[in-house]
Nucleic acid binder design. Structure first.
Length: 266
DNA sequence: AAGCCCCTCAACCGCAAGTAC
DNA sequence: AGTACTTGCGGTTGAGGGGCT
């Protein structure tokens, strides 16, 4: 297997902090060419850094929407709950906390929350094994998978590949015949429900987890922008989410039709 | 003032998964 | 189908700063 560190391409042989000049060069490069194509970033920016270092610097520090400063109480509460659900899936956790990076969340967990949780070993939701805090609850771990969109007939270069994490947030309309299943944990396993089977899927989910009662059904919601019935559901804040997001929220917060989620946030 | 320890967080490493050829 | 390469992630490291003795 090909492995790839980047120390050999650093040209310094050791960890070195980014300078202000390097930051400016990288930012100009991203502004001009956009994100992605990280293998070209060092040469484009004129930096003596490897592509991984460039990407990391951008993602964790230079990106404009990154939020700096102390984590708020709400963010901390969310991290705790998400970690209980997802385990050490920092990218997924950070993805649900606007402005925070996976590195930020990971560092915050390791420096603040891990010890905090360890102080309460009798918490029914955690246990201490080999000095590590392991999530006791079922962990939602969607695995990477891909499927092809309708290939473009006019643009040969259009790869048109869609990734599983993109679909997670889409207003999805699935083709009929896509296999559905609910894993033993009651969480998504292989495949996704298609439009006609969402009701069945949710019924299975509820049957598997008697505490759940999902209402409204995703297909009950009409997209205000297009006036079409799509697989969107509204959360407590009036935001429209994909049904997959909705399921995750149910797993996290309980039912939107109850006060459970809000009560626990306070 | 010097030395030590601890904490924080930016940066690096190694790997898994996806993609290109 | 196999291999090389790219991307992104989680784990780990280490520089730097602050507090304490």
């Amino acid at each position: 297997m090909h492995t790839e560190g980047c120390s050999s391409t650093y040209g310094r042989g050791e960890k070195s902090a980014w300078t202000r000049e390097e930051d400016i060069l990288l930012k100009k490069c991203i502004d001009k060419y956009g994100e992605g194509k990280w293998q070209l970033a060092p040469s484009r920016a004129g930096l003596n850094r490897c592509r991984k270092s460039c990407r990391l610097r951008w993602m964790n520090y230079l990106k404009p929407d990154i939020k700096r400063g102390e984590f708020t109480a709400d963010e901390v509460a969310l991290i705790l709950r998400l970690h209980k659900l997802l385990g050490n899936r920092w990218a997924m956790i950070a993805g649900r906390i606007p402005g925070r990076t996976a590195n930020d969340v990971k560092n915050y967990w390791n420096t603040h929350l891990r010890k905090k949780v360890a102080l309460f070993p009798h918490d029914k939701n955690t246990k201490n094994t080999n000095n590590d805090i392991i999530a006791k609850s079922n962990v939602f771990k969607p695995r990477p998978r891909t499927f092809k969109k309708q290939p473009s007939l006019t643009n040969k270069n259009n790869k048109d590949t869609k990734y599983w994490w993109e679909s997670l947030l889409d207003d999805i309309t699935f083709d009929d015949g896509v296999a559905n299943s609910v894993s033993s944990t009651g969480l998504l396993d292989h495949g996704q429900p298609n439009n006609g089977n969402i009701a069945n899927f949710l019924s299975e989910l509820e049957a598997d987890q008697p505490a759940l009662s999902i209402s409204p059904r995703p297909t009950d919601i009409t997209d205000s922008a297009t006036s079409t019935c799509v697989n969107l559901v509204e959360d407590d804040y009036g935001h429209q989410n994909s049904w997959t997001d909705f399921i995750m929220d149910v797993e996290l917060w309980g039912l939107p039709s109850t006060d459970q989620g809000n009560a626990e946030m306070q």
